[in-house]
């Protein structure tokens, strides 16, 4: 890959803060959901964001897709500042919004319950002029449905969302999002609500689509095994987030089999495994079970309140994100020069 090539999407020192207002004027606090994240996404890149709930992965995903306006920092689409474009070149902004699609978390509430599968799927096709007439639309929708193996398609096009199974709903949601041929898909916890045995179904569909079109994925999940599956098959990276920042970033195998950051180690300890010997031994080694509030993150390293290796420096100074090996980053004083 050419290093000098302009990435599709670049996130520079992004911060998204939410202000909690008091009932009668004044500010109660600021939730620092994303607090300084930089990221480059090139064509066909797959990045899995993992972390607990409240670590800011969903907000980062939404910011990448242009659904939340960042407080600070910039998002560049093909080298152009997205939010500057919003003011000065709305057409360019819409192009970006079309090319970067967000796949919402909950397939149950993502659809309008009063519309059939056909109506749901044909709306973006007509809007973005992928087809010109309704007649053409039927063929197109039938093709989309058989592509995602929702068969027989004739039977499905007039069904309502509640008549679909969880897996089908998710496949159709994925088909809806990819029907406009995006370059980047931000999939927000797409597999969390699905049975473990059916999770690979959607991931295989995503992989198949990736093979065909080399779309870039931002895959948000708290499940390590799935994050590994999708990133290792595509040569992607895993980014571990904690309270709005990356604490570790690198290739899946290295991150899971040799986690450097104590938080990543905790995540690996927490991940369910079928190997009985490992499963019986694995225990969490956290000093504190619950995640601190993002309104008032701990000083110094944000993880020090729960970290089993916390030192004096951790409570005072925030560690920098350093590159330990090629393409592998970690934010921890255990590895950084003081």
């Amino acid at each position: 890959m050419d290093v000098n090539e302009v990435p599709l999407l670049e996130v520079r020192d992004l911060k998204v803060h939410f202000v909690i207002k008091k009932r009668i004027g004044g500010v109660k606090g600021v939730v620092r959901a994303v607090d300084g994240v930089s990221l480059k996404i090139r064509k066909g890149d797959v990045i899995a964001l993992v972390g607990e709930s409240g670590c800011g992965k969903t907000t980062l995903g939404k910011a990448i897709a242009g659904l939340v306006k960042p407080t600070e920092g910039t998002i560049l689409w093909k080298g152009r500042d997205v939010w500057k474009m919003y003011r000065e070149d709305p057409k360019g902004f819409f192009e970006y919004k079309l090319r970067v699609q967000y796949m919402p978390q909950d397939p149950y509430s993502a659809f309008n319950p009063s519309k059939t599968v056909f109506e749901i799927l044909c709306t973006p096709l007509l809007k973005w002029k992928r087809v010109t007439s309704r007649a053409e639309c039927i063929d197109y929708v039938l093709k989309i449905l058989s592509d995602i193996k929702v068969t027989p398609p004739e039977e499905y096009i007039f069904r309502y969302p509640h008549q679909l199974s969880g897996g089908e709903r998710q496949r159709i949601l994925f088909a809806l999002i990819t029907s406009v041929e995006p370059d980047v898909v931000v999939a927000d916890e797409p597999i969390t609500a699905v049975d473990v045995a059916l999770r690979v179904d959607l991931m295989n569909l995503m992989l198949e689509y990736w093979e065909r079109r080399r779309v870039a994925y931002v895959f948000i999940s708290h499940e390590l095994a799935s994050a590994r599956y999708i990133t290792e098959k595509t040569g992607g990276k895993i980014g571990v987030m904690y309270l709005g920042k990356f604490v570790e970033f690198g290739p899946p195998r290295a991150v899971i089999e040799n986690p450097l950051h104590p938080y990543t180690q905790a995540l690996v300890d927490a991940a369910p495994e079928l190997d009985l010997e490992i499963a019986r031994k694995k225990r969490l080694r956290l000093r504190e079970v619950d995640i601190p509030s993002a309104t008032n993150p701990p000083k110094g390293c944000r993880f020090h309140t729960r970290c089993p290796y916390a030192m004096d420096i951790c409570t005072e100074k925030e560690p920098p994100l350093i590159e330990v090996e090629n393409g592998r980053y970690v934010r921890c004083w255990l590895y950084a020069k003081r």
Partner: peptide, 19 residues
């Protein structure tokens, strides 16, 4: 089938298929 439909966390990564 149930056991084989679960992607492994460690070791060799095979192609996982649901039932």
């Amino acid at each position: 089938g149930l056991l084989k439909a679960i992607p492994p966390l460690r070791g060799e990564l095979r192609f996982v298929k649901p039932i």
